[in-house]
Amino acid sequence: MGDKGMQKIDPLDHQQRLDRITEIFAGMVTHADEQAAYRCPYRDRFDQCTAKFRCTNQAKTAVEGAVKGAVKGAVKGAVKGAVKGAVEGELPGCEHDGRFDYRSAWESDPQSYDRAKAKIEQIHSNASRLRA
């Protein structure tokens, strides 16, 4: 590949470069956290959902979007969902009004934490028993 084998990069200069990249990325990560308070991070600039999982706010097709909007009891929602579904095709539209803290979606009830804790203990105990 050309004379790239001849190229040399000064490690100290490169560290400064990494510091600059880190500065840019750290700003992004901080902003992403702040933004999660009012916008789902899977929602792109075209208000499409990029998540690989199903979400109740997704409207995949014109019909689906229209039905969802209608079910919500808002004619505006039905029309919006239909237009989005028809125009965008591949990615489902996000139908959420944006007024929620995305981060709270993961704050499950204390019982689910207890169940997770019990499950973890069980996994360790089963593994120890099998090894013995």
């Binding site: 470069r17 990249i21 840019i24 700003g27 992004m28 902003h31 992403a32 899977y42 792109d44 600039r45």
Partner: peptide
Amino acid sequence: IAGMGIVGIKFRENFIFVPEV
């Protein structure tokens, strides 16, 4: 890096979002 600098600004100003970043 020059390009990523612009991306950082666009994200900070909410012109683009996490999927674009």
